[in-house]
Computed example of a mutant assay.
Amino acid sequence: MKVHHLNSGTMRPFGGRLVTGRGSFFHRGELVCHTLVLETDSASLVLVDTGLGLDDVRTPKATLPLLFRVASRPVLDERETTARQLAALGLATSDVRHVALTHLDVDHAGGVRDFPGARVHVLREELDDRANPRYSPAQWRDADLVPHDPTGETWAGFEGVRELLPDVLLVPLVGHTRGHTGVAVRTGDGWLLHAGDAYFHHGQLATPPHIPVGLAGFERRMQTIAELRLANLARLREVADRVTVVNAHDAAHLRRFAPAHAS
């Protein structure tokens, strides 16, 4: 399994150091939309999240809520969309057969429309909550959405894990949203877990854990079930020494795997 790490949407919120923990308080922060492209043995492609899509960039007022645009300050660069980056890698959007979404927030599901031939996989709890006003149904209304229920299987101490495809697992990490999930991928170097928004900053996996105060406040405001989010964060901290864990918005994570995609 070949894994590509992409930034499918840069965001520049106000707050600088309060958001990233470095630089000036008066500059804009840096957040990314860390997505994965998996090249499988069958020559098909699997995406983990999609970031912002072509329509989001071209007509943001139609698909991106005002609060998101004001708070996150997305850059809206078409070159950052997953569709355009696949072309730059010499890969065809028509070869995307599956999209695994960690959840339906607009900065994760925006590119779904760019892959009309793909099956889009989400946890059933997430799909059942699709009327939540934080989501933008226009992004995925016509998609082939496939709901999944947690199973009795465990992986790395996490429960309810479901095999989506060979070497690709859905790992429920509920808390940020009601149906939030991580996606685990077996690579040549071991397991990689994309934890979505289960945590926002790499310092949360450190000892002692830490996170910039502004980002911590945003994380709390966006959580749906605090006790489950915190429990899953504690479990992620425990497994981080044997599983490579990344999240969706930390530029430091992306820089580790794809330096060209993070400034």
Rank of each mutant, 00 (worst) to 15 (best):
N247T: 04
E39Y: 04
S8A: 15
A231R: 14
D250M: 03
G160Q: 04
M11Q: 09
I211V: 14
T207D: 14
L228K: 05
A88V: 06
V19Q: 10
A206K: 15
F257N: 06
R84I: 12
T244A: 11
G16C: 01
E163Y: 02
H103I: 04
P13C: 08
T59I: 09
L104G: 08
A43Q: 15
G9D: 04
H253D: 09
V57T: 08
T93F: 01
I225W: 10
L86N: 00
K61E: 14
H201F: 12
A43F: 06
H261F: 10
P212W: 00
K2P: 05
R134K: 12
P147R: 05
R162P: 01
A226Y: 12
L233G: 03
P209C: 09
L6E: 04
H98K: 09
S44Q: 13
D189K: 05
E159L: 11
A87L: 07
G203N: 02
L230Q: 12
R12E: 01
G15S: 05
D241M: 02
H176C: 09
A87E: 11
P74C: 09
L31P: 01
A198L: 01
A262G: 05
A226G: 12
P150C: 07
A184C: 04
A234H: 05
H108D: 13
A43E: 15
D105F: 11
V245T: 10
